[in-house]
Design a protein around this nucleic acid. Structure first.
Lengths: 147, 147
DNA sequence: CGTGCACCTTCCCATAATGGGAAGGTCAAG
DNA sequence: CTTGACCTTCCCATTATGGGAAGGTGCACG
């Protein structure tokens, strides 16, 4: 089948299929007499594997490694799990960062009246916050209603 | 002061200071007779504002907008809050995506023995998962349902 | 048969934010 | 005067993706 149909069936755009081939993630596709790439069901399965792996946030390098492991019928599952857990660690790290940011921003947004006036705790904080925390290193629950 | 010291004091690398100037996020710095950029305390404050805003994950475009609002003493705080909440929405969206991925990956990793054997539910899932979920909820060990 | 449209090919460009590094100017200390 | 630590501007690389041009191919319809 043509690259267009392969793209439709695998959920990987034609552009990306060519790119993956170009960077060596995928082997060069078979070509028809006219130079068109030609894909079979096995190729589609590979493309779907790549898409699903990408959907889980693995980098192309990691996808390549997983692809190799997948195709190596002798691989030790340890290798796969190691990759997965490494990625999980990374995701966890990013999650924590993001959670911190969200917490900070929510606190600031809550304190900002968001009306016609210029007074704005958000900008005040951005202008002078010291290191990590939202301006007041306050004790927990927010219970001051600003006038 | 030189760009190096400005970088050290603001926490923005010299490289980035020049870049921000180049893309118009910052006005061109004053220059000394020898062509060196020259920064004063007010400049440092702006750089710190930029760094803090970046640290909260705002894009450079958003940093630019916030910077403009910060410097506009007449701004309605509504504008600031709107930007912050828009960004919060984006972060929230990304958080959810990431949480889903993490959940899926954790489930898969848990099912993988991670030993010398080739059997690997992670790869099996990547090879045949349908849409969102980690293959089956839970039952017995993954069998070869692939036909 | 011809024409047109939908597809394919390769190649270049752009994105976002950052760092690396080259080639060359400047300055202060020794 | 040399050395080293700055500074300057430029170009390149990164990651993964899409846009679009220029040109070839193939099928279907009139």
């Amino acid at each position: 089948m043509n690259i267009g149909e392969a793209a439709a069936r695998s959920g990987v755009s034609a552009k990306m299929i060519r790119y993956y081939e170009g960077v060596g993630l995928l082997p060069g596709a078979a070509r028809r007499a006219n130079g068109y790439r030609d894909y079979g069901n096995a190729d589609i399965a590979v493309l779907q594997f790549v898409r699903r792996t990408r959907d889980l946030g693995f980098s192309l390098d990691e996808v390549g490694a997983l692809l190799a492991l997948w195709q190596d019928k002798e691989r030790p599952s340890r290798e796969v799990k190691r990759l997965a857990e490494h990625h999980l660690g990374e995701l966890d790290r990013r999650m924590k960062e993001m959670r911190t940011i969200i917490r900070t921003l929510k606190t600031l947004a809550r304190q900002c009246r968001g009306d016609d006036r210029a007074e704005c705790p958000i900008l005040d904080d951005l202008a002078s916050r010291d290191a990590g925390k939202p301006s007041p290193p306050r004790r927990c629950r927010t219970r001051h209603a600003r006038a």
